[in-house]
């Protein structure tokens, strides 16, 4: 239990944290802790609480914006994926699978990239006032469109970079 704050950082980049917790209090504590320390990271910080008596798992998902989703599911569903049960903390090795790639892509791209697009377009609205001063309404319309086109190209390149990074993150060749 005491190792939790120190080891939680390991899970910033993926993995599943298993906690044997019959009282069910630990999952709440852990979720609160992860929420505070890794709130900037996305959906991949996960904690599982195994309720020994009733053999279901309380699956706590700490999202990038600090929200917590709790899903109850059967332990059997996860059992096959777990490499070792010798420790309370189990880090799963990432495999070159489509699931891994899509999770890594989501982690890298969202919600940062939509936010980048929004702020880029917002900046365009103001930078184009220069064109309004020198070219009137027609100048403003031209500059806004040109600037937003640049935003679109920029954001799509960010998306492609994320897709490539996700590919390598999953250990694909």
């Amino acid at each position: 239990m005491n190792a939790m704050p120190r080891d939680a950082g390991k899970f910033k980049t993926g993995g599943i944290l298993i906690v044997f917790d019959e009282s069910k209090k630990m999952s709440q504590m852990l979720a609160t802790h992860l929420r505070l320390t890794t709130a900037t990271k996305s959906l991949i910080v996960e904690a599982l609480t195994i309720n020994g008596a009733e053999s279901y798992i309380t699956y706590v998902l700490v999202t990038r914006n600090g929200g917590i989703l709790t899903i109850k599911t059967s332990y059997e569903h996860y059992k096959s994926k777990i490499a070792t049960t010798s420790s309370d903390l189990i880090h799963l090795l990432k495999e070159c699978t489509f699931e891994c790639w899509i999770n890594e892509l989501a982690d890298c791209a969202f919600p940062d990239i939509p936010l980048d697009l929004l702020s880029c377009m917002w900046d365009c609205m103001f930078f184009s006032f220069v064109c309004f001063i020198f070219g009137g309404m027609a100048g403003y319309a031209t500059c806004v469109e040109a600037c937003i086109t640049a935003c679109q190209i920029y954001v799509s390149i960010e998306l492609i970079i994320c897709a490539i990074l996700a590919f390598f993150e999953c250990g694909c060749p």
Partner: peptide, 13 residues
């Protein structure tokens, strides 16, 4: 400079 900047963008467009 402002006029030149705007003219260039308009020409490109």
């Amino acid at each position: 400079y402002g006029r030149r900047f705007v003219d260039r963008i308009r020409r490109w467009r």
